[in-house]
Simulated scan of single mutants.
Amino acid sequence: MIIQLEKNIDKTQKEKLFDKLTALKIDARLIKTNFREYIVGIPSGEFDLREIGNMPGIADIHRVSDSYKMVSRKWKLNNTVIDLGDGITIGNGELAIMAGPCAIESEEQIISIVNHLKKNNIRIMRGGVYKPRSSPYSFRGLGIEGLKLFHKHCSENGIKVITEVMQVSQVEPMLDYVDIFQVGARNSQNFSLLDVLGKTDKPVMIKRGISGTIDELLYSAEYVFSGGNEKIMLCERGIRTFERATRNTLDLSAIPILKDKTHLPVIVDPSHGVGIRNYVPPMALAGVMSGADGVIMEIHETPEKAFSDGPQSLYYPQAEKLYRQLRETKKLRDHF
């Protein structure tokens, strides 16, 4: 059960509400988010919803059978829209395109990609400054100094920054230089990190775990929401299966399922989903047709020289062609 409180509810009304919930043997938890207050209630038996719904100070009340309650569409039918400022939104019916390198490598590289994105009216740049690598000897990012350069050039050009945070200790130092925190696949069940991100006011994009189920992804989002942050989006980035023809198996069926189960925006990542440059464009287009609110993709001026993930990064001309195709595909989807 989810109880949405009136914004002007007073202390006495709130105390009476909790007394009523206790009398009805409903385990109740107050959640304060960026926007308002809710109570999540877990009843131990049957009760009449009207006994609570008619009390003063309540804006709305819903029965929600899903264990992930706050991110469920069963109580919130309208899609969540994430406002990044400067006219940039995600989840409002427009297609969000996020593009950039796997890793931030140098200031010169940042400037090159920013100029490319401006030319193509792409308003969100991806790029890692902390890189979770399978091998400890691989390039692991430029850290906070790289992020400061990344933010400087993007903010000067009206472009928003999405980058991965790997551990709790990184959140606070990164806060002023990030527009969207990305939780990578390896950290999708790092509940300590999710708890801390729930206490920030910055949007969070959670990638599906390497072998994670759809429900597990929704539980991860519930951690962030229950911590107080409603600005959440989900990302299908491929899962590990027995197939070895691609880096991962991009589960496009997850996109319409997530759109049905949750009110949160859903993003598709074809770069990690297949890991092979020539397969990225068709999977990106298929992701849009599947209902994705946005696409996050890897690009590089010279992928063969990239410090990481070169084989799945698009050359600029390939990316420019794909941007046009993505926008046309979104128009086609709107006709259905």
Rank of each mutant, 00 (worst) to 15 (best):
residue 1 M to Q: 10
residue 3 I to Y: 06
residue 3 I to T: 08
residue 3 I to N: 09
residue 5 L to Q: 14
residue 10 D to M: 11
residue 17 L to N: 07
residue 17 L to K: 05
residue 20 K to A: 15
residue 26 I to G: 01
residue 27 D to A: 03
residue 27 D to G: 00
residue 28 A to L: 09
residue 31 I to V: 15
residue 32 K to P: 01
residue 39 I to Y: 07
residue 41 G to P: 08
residue 42 I to T: 07
residue 46 E to V: 10
residue 48 D to S: 13
residue 54 N to G: 11
residue 56 P to I: 08
residue 62 H to F: 15
residue 63 R to S: 07
residue 64 V to M: 02
residue 65 S to A: 09
residue 66 D to T: 10
residue 69 K to G: 01
residue 70 M to I: 10
residue 70 M to C: 11
residue 70 M to F: 12
residue 71 V to H: 02
residue 73 R to K: 13
residue 76 K to V: 01
residue 77 L to A: 13
residue 80 T to K: 02
residue 82 I to L: 15
residue 82 I to D: 10
residue 83 D to R: 03
residue 83 D to I: 04
residue 88 I to G: 05
residue 89 T to S: 12
residue 89 T to E: 11
residue 91 G to R: 06
residue 94 E to I: 00
residue 95 L to K: 06
residue 95 L to R: 06
residue 96 A to R: 05
residue 99 A to F: 01
residue 102 C to F: 09
residue 102 C to A: 05
residue 104 I to C: 08
residue 110 I to N: 01
residue 114 V to I: 13
residue 114 V to E: 05
residue 120 N to S: 03
residue 131 K to V: 11
residue 135 S to G: 08
residue 135 S to I: 05
residue 143 G to N: 14
residue 143 G to S: 14
residue 152 K to E: 11
residue 154 C to F: 01
residue 155 S to N: 14
residue 157 N to K: 03
residue 159 I to L: 04
residue 161 V to A: 03
residue 164 E to N: 11
residue 170 Q to H: 15
residue 171 V to Y: 03
residue 174 M to T: 04
residue 176 D to A: 10
residue 180 I to N: 11
residue 180 I to F: 11
residue 182 Q to L: 07
residue 184 G to H: 11
residue 184 G to K: 12
residue 186 R to H: 08
residue 189 Q to K: 09
residue 190 N to Y: 12
residue 191 F to A: 06
residue 193 L to V: 12
residue 193 L to C: 14
residue 194 L to A: 06
residue 199 K to L: 12
residue 201 D to F: 10
residue 201 D to E: 14
residue 203 P to M: 12
residue 214 I to G: 01
residue 217 L to E: 06
residue 219 Y to K: 06
residue 220 S to R: 00
residue 224 V to Q: 02
residue 225 F to S: 07
residue 226 S to M: 14
residue 230 E to W: 00
residue 231 K to L: 15
residue 233 M to A: 02
residue 233 M to F: 00
residue 237 R to H: 09
residue 238 G to S: 12
residue 241 T to L: 09
residue 242 F to H: 01
residue 246 T to S: 12
residue 247 R to E: 12
residue 253 S to P: 00
residue 253 S to F: 02
residue 254 A to V: 10
residue 255 I to L: 07
residue 258 L to D: 09
residue 260 D to R: 14
residue 261 K to Y: 10
residue 264 L to Q: 01
residue 269 D to T: 06
residue 272 H to E: 05
residue 273 G to E: 03
residue 275 G to F: 02
residue 277 R to D: 05
residue 279 Y to G: 00
residue 287 G to N: 05
residue 294 G to L: 03
residue 305 K to M: 10
residue 312 Q to S: 08
residue 313 S to D: 01
residue 314 L to E: 10
residue 317 P to S: 04
residue 324 R to V: 00
residue 326 L to Y: 04
